[in-house]
Design a binder for these strands. Structure first.
Lengths: 341, 341
DNA sequence: CTGAAAGCGCTTACAG
DNA sequence: CTGAAAGCGCTTACAG
């Protein structure tokens, strides 16, 4: 392994000398200020000649702007990579670099890390992909956007979690004839899970339906599996609203273990439109989410906050789409098949 | 939206003044050099008093070390987040920050971006999660590790792609009685896909088995689906080695569309151990990968290269584990069921 | 429109 | 073991 020479880059002084101007003039050139055309040309030639690129570090030090944002990734998680990627691309487009900070543990651990980061002066804004303590928004010296809550905590910024599509899911199931529901929720430390559960309960109430339980799961397939296995023999549930596709897969699996067929004996609805769920058997009815739009959206809002511009409305409501597939159908008539033996 | 006051942090000079020493002494304190105990105590108190944290930017500017690494994320991709997270945690543990760079497009686009990044002086090393042009390793001023190739290109660093578990997969299927195989490969621009394909062909050859084709797919479930649907009516294939779980799900789905049962009429083997595949029906036999170990491994190797230390062997071979599940069984006797009609 | 001076907050020699 | 000087590569006033 050869340790390489540190790259030797031209400085603003060398460019100035080659162009026959002062380095201040080069600085103006770099920042796009007015120069006499003849001067500009000379500088331009020198810059090209030396393949000069300004030292961002020196610039940041002087301007006290780092042009850097941080994204906080909770771990473990199954966060969609596409969201992260869109956030990254959007940041770069606005000339920000993106620092990736992965944090194990719960929202306390994340919050500590975010506080430290916010006070370090290293970044101008922070996007957290999971909930934080509620007071961070008001005490942080830089804007913090979180996907974990969407009221006006967090300086009014957060909003990736949105339970409203649950309404569409339930109305769709009702249109098939369902009246008896079960919800397998996600971990209640997540706002998205709380939102979906809340909207589920509200909608059941509002439409005069019957909910036969809300199981607080942990986003895992196993939690879906267990929820079904634990259902009593005489359950009236005909439709399950699962908090995501993974859980829905577990639900299907649990149903099969009871010799129930999906959707003949039980309709199952997922969330996320994972590719693999499209090819599952049965394929999963689900909510398709435009992750790119989501990541872009979040980053644009963060950048607006940093710049002190009015923060745009989140377009979250328009990025969810209901996709009916094989796992949902008309409700069975009468009781579900009994257990083996 | 209130634009916050820029955070005002104490400088090394203020600490020095409060402690009654020179700022050079504080600098020594920060770098852990020897100080007279009495001096150290004074500085220590002042640092705590002012909640002083050194400005990394100024330090970097002077030392010309940025303490930053970049990770290049190809898009679109389904790269495991856990790998990214482990890479991030490992980098932080070694006092590096991690810059996330997401790049759309093929290896040319990525390579351009990596070259630019390497020459920018902003980062000390780069981990690319997908293949790059082969010459980058030798021309880059900073170490570049890629997951895309694992020979001694790339300054001998790369190595996340490893086809060797394919041997285990085939031997396992042979132990069940299979002799007639099909491989649905991944996109051949990925070294991991090329490796698996190569090892598949070698193993078939070595063990005197029959391969009834290699389908060059694109990592999608559809490619698996199509591969099966396109098989002739009288195919002798009894086992499919899919390049990953998603493709395997498509293979299962394709089999069902021909009224073949899995594994009765066809055994299907996946790769990745996606959680959702564990709960698929049938559950997928697969290769479980320790993504955390993989990410950690890659980052440790990159850091070693940066420090000019001998680069440790990759532990990749030990992080893959064969997990047999329901999608594989003994081969059928005689032909597979004919198509409908 | 352009140049000479000062300074961002550190670290690295160089003295003592 | 500690301090005074210089400098990393820029930008921001201040003159002209």
């Amino acid at each position: 392994m050869i340790k390489p020479e540190p790259p030797r880059r031209a400085t603003i002084y060398e460019v100035a000398r080659l162009a026959g101007v002062s380095h201040q003039t080069v600085s103006r050139y770099l920042r796009g200020e007015r120069l006499k055309p003849a001067t500009r040309e000379k500088v331009d030639a020198a810059v090209k000649d030396l393949d000069y690129r300004p030292n961002q570090l020196a610039r940041s030090m002087r301007t006290r702007r780092t042009n850097r944002l941080a994204v906080v990734l909770p771990m473990p998680s199954t966060f969609p990579l596409r969201l992260l990627s869109a956030a990254s691309a959007t940041a770069h487009k606005a000339d920000y670099e993106l620092e990736l900070v992965s944090v194990e543990g719960g929202s306390e651990a994340r919050s500590d890390r975010v506080r430290e980061l916010a006070e370090s002066g290293r970044v101008e804004g922070i996007l957290s992909l999971a909930s934080l303590d509620e007071d961070i928004g008001s005490t942080s010296p830089v804007p913090v956007l979180t996907t974990g809550d969407y009221d006006d905590q967090m300086r009014g910024l957060g909003l990736l979690a949105d339970g409203s599509p649950v309404v569409d899911v339930i109305e769709y199931l009702v249109s098939l004839g369902h009246q008896d529901f079960l919800h397998v929720a996600g971990s209640q430390s997540w706002a998205s899970a709380r939102n979906r559960k809340r909207v589920y309960l509200e909608t059941i109430e509002r439409l005069g339906l019957r909910s036969h339980g809300v199981v607080d799961g942990n986003w895992s397939a196993r939690s879906g599996y267990d929820a079904i296995v634990d259902l009593p023999d005489d359950t009236e549930v005909t439709a399950v609203v699962a908090v995501n596709d993974t859980v829905a897969m577990g639900v299907v699996r649990g149903a099969l273990s009871r010799r129930w067929q999906v959707p003949r004996d039980l309709s199952v609805f997922g969330w996320d439109d994972d590719e693999i769920a499209r090819f599952a058997t049965p394929s999963l009815s689900t909510i398709a989410i435009d992750r790119e739009a989501q990541g872009r959206d979040a980053m644009l809002r963060l950048i607006a906050a940093i710049r002190g511009e009015p923060v745009p409305e989140s377009g979250v409501r328009s990025i969810n789409r209901l996709v009916p597939r094989e796992s949902t159908g008309r409700p069975r008539q009468g009781p579900a098949p009994a257990r083996q033996g």
